[in-house]
Design a protein around this nucleic acid. Sequence first.
DNA 1: ACGCCCGCCTGTAAGC
DNA 2: TGCTTACAGGCGGGCG
Length: 278
Amino acid sequence: MPELPEVETIRRGLEREVTGKRIKTVEVHGTRSIRRHKNKKEFIARLEGTKINAVGRTGKFLVFRLDSGDRLVAHLRMSGQLLRAQARDPVPKHTHVVMTFTQGGQLRYVDPRTFGELFVGTPEDVAEHMPELAELGFDPVDEPMSWVVFGELLLRRRQKLKTVLLDQTFIAGLGNIYSDEILFQAGLRYDRTPDTLSSMEIRRLYRALVEVMHEAVKHRGSTLSDSQYVDVFGRPGNYQVEHQVYDREGEACRRCRTPIVRVKFQQRSTFFCPHCQV
DNA sequence: ACGCCCGCCTGTAAGC
DNA sequence: TGCTTACAGGCGGGCG
């Protein structure tokens, strides 16, 4: 579910809520959420007794820096949530990991679809067992680049624009919602190829990428009707009210009133305005 | 090199 | 009111 803006909102919540706290105990239910570990014991032993010094993010990955030198890496995939809780709070269904802090309070990992996962280890362990993290492309919020360099990288690509935007080894953090919103903002169709873009269009695409990401972070991400995404404190985001195309099939384009079109592209929905996007 | 399809899961909503 | 089907913010792998 969460893309860069949602993960960044969660990161900011974690920074406030768990940095400086020491993990007293860890409970793990099932093994699927920690599937890159040999067993639960190893996962638990590496976490218990450590203090969280900082929480970072690259693309859709969260990286907790522990005082042991280890990193705890989390990827929420479609339905993962990290939630602050008190020990006395009822434990919701699909709670896979519970960390209790010496200062009181808990951080819980809840994930109905269990696509998400947690991994803890030395930086070398992380590099070995989670190679995707090292292969991420640039983070449009953390490491902006010039649109000229962006254009050079883009022009090496032969795929359609939406495929390129979704490629985490090129740009880290975009998913289905924001790639559609960025392409609308840039006035470009999802199926254009980079070699057909003018330099003005490349510049527009890069501007749209950075602007949409910053606006979405400012509004604390998008929570859709299913309320799947909430931050660490259980609060929904607000960016969904700013959506121009995503989940707006048949509704009037906010710019030209033409009905928004939905197509299947790579087995997933793509929304666009057939008039504003060329 | 690229696009397409499936699988991984559970929950929800739409359709009959 | 059921039951069945389609689909959902991600991503990796296999195939042609």
